[in-house]
Design a protein around this nucleic acid. Structure first.
Length: 271
DNA sequence: ACTGGCTCCTGAGGGC
DNA sequence: TGCCCTCAGGAGCCAG
């Protein structure tokens, strides 16, 4: 579910409730997420003021003195601000209780998400250390993408979804960006020209930027930190639209599995 | 160094 | 109504 726009939307939603508040208690109901929740997370957060709520790729960082809690939403995770009287549901795996009574609640039916402790400089944690650039930063550009794709035989769609190349682009936005750029998702990455790498990089920035502006994409269950849905699903041009006409040329949109994921594209507009 | 495949889970939806 | 199958938005990890 959550790709970069959904994680950023969540971050913006929860940040005002967390900043400068102290963590009073952590309630863990189900420690078995992607990695078991270690007791050290609770120990290190307890009593600490949260000094920043940051995002790196699809990871959220709740920074405190001495490190940060890393939260990943996996495929079905969400974070919600609620009050202590809200009853916890079966997939509400942990609560961060703040000193003003506010609760940050993590729900994740598929349990692919994570809560980890990253000591000292959290950006040197093994999960963050080797991540590629943020797609909306200066470091990500067409020339960067061109350089990183040389001699790569794999499909361009798999490459832009590889977090070591660029972070935050999941299955939905990869299809959308390649449609905007006019590039076929299965095209060998190393054989794409510099000019077309420019178009792909620009399309990724545009799609992610628009999706953040619309509060993310809610296909089934995404909600922001306050329980509100996103609206980018209304702007999806090809994702999930196999058999419907292409918005540019009316040719029927096709779908194909690429690296175990469904890809959607127009054979006339994308080469 | 790359590449493709497997894996962790639960829930929804379609076919019969 | 119920059972079985397939698929789902992530991404670390492994073998080749």
């Amino acid at each position: 579910m959550p790709e970069l726009p959904e994680v950023e939307t969540t971050r913006r939603g929860i940040e005002p409730y967390l900043l400068a508040r102290c963590v009073a208690h952590i309630e863990i109901r189900q420690p078995r997420l992607r990695w078991p929740i270690s007791s050290s997370v609770a120990e290190r957060l307890q009593g600490q003021p949260i000094c920043a709520v940051e995002r790196r790729g699809k990871y959220l960082l709740l920074r405190v003195h001495g490190g940060a809690a890393l939260v990943h939403l996996g495929m079905s995770g969400s974070l919600r601000i609620c009050d202590p009287l809200t009853p916890a549901g079966p997939h509400d795996h942990f609560d961060l209780e703040l000193d003003d009574g506010t609760i940050l609640r993590f729900q994740d039916p598929r349990r692919f998400g994570a809560l980890l402790w990253a000591p000292d400089d959290p950006y040197s944690h093994p999960l963050l250390r080797d991540l590629g650039p943020e797609p909306l930063s200066e470091a990500f550009s067409g020339s960067y993408l061109y350089r990183r794709t040389r001699n790569r035989a794999g499909a361009i769609k798999n490459l832009i979804m590889d977090s070591r190349i660029v972070v935050g682009v999941g299955n939905i936005y990869a299809s959308e960006a390649l449609f905007l750029a006019g590039v076929h998702p299965a095209r060998a990455a190393g054989r794409i020209s510099a000019a077309r790498c420019d178009r792909i990089a620009e399309a990724i920035r545009r799609v992610l930027g628009e999706a953040i502006d619309l509060g993310g994409t809610t296909l089934r269950d995404f909600r922001d930190g306050l329980g509100r849905p996103g609206y980018f699903q209304l702007r999806l041009r090809v994702y999930g639209r196999a058999g419907e006409p292409c918005p540019h040329c009316a040719q029927l949109i096709r779908s194909q599995r690429l690296g175990q994921r469904s890809s959607y594209y127009c054979t006339r507009c994308q080469r």
